[in-house]
Computed example of a mutant assay.
Amino acid sequence: MTMTTAASAVPRPPAWPWLAAAALSGALAIAAALLGHWPLLAVAKPLTTILIIAGAWQRGGLPRRRAAILAGLVLSLVGDVALLWPKEGFLIGLVAFLLAHLAYLVAFTASTRLAAKPLAFAAYAVVAGLLLWQLWPGVPGALRLPVVVYVVALASMAAQATCWALAEPDGPARSAAIGGALFVASDATLAFNKFAAPFALAPLAILLTYWSAQALIALALPPRGR
Rank of each mutant, 00 (worst) to 15 (best):
R12Y: 04
Q214W: 08
I53S: 01
A165M: 03
W38F: 14
A123S: 04
V184N: 04
R144L: 15
P11C: 06
I206A: 05
G141V: 12
A9P: 00
F90V: 06
A220R: 00
L73A: 01
A96S: 14
G93W: 10
T189L: 15
T109L: 08
A177H: 03
A33C: 09
L208H: 09
I53H: 05
K194G: 00
S111M: 02
F199V: 14
A96F: 11
S212N: 04
A31W: 14
G36L: 08
A7E: 11
L166A: 09
A32W: 05
A103I: 04
A125M: 08
S156P: 02
L135V: 11
M157T: 10
P169H: 06
A196N: 11
A115K: 13
L207V: 07
F195N: 12
A155Y: 08
L154Y: 09
K194S: 05
G179H: 13
A176R: 09
C163H: 04
W18T: 05
S186H: 03
T209K: 00
P14S: 15
L24S: 11
W133I: 02
C163P: 00
A167H: 08
W16E: 08
G180I: 08
A21F: 10
A177N: 02
L98F: 15
F108K: 09
K117I: 13
V74P: 00
G79K: 12
L73P: 00
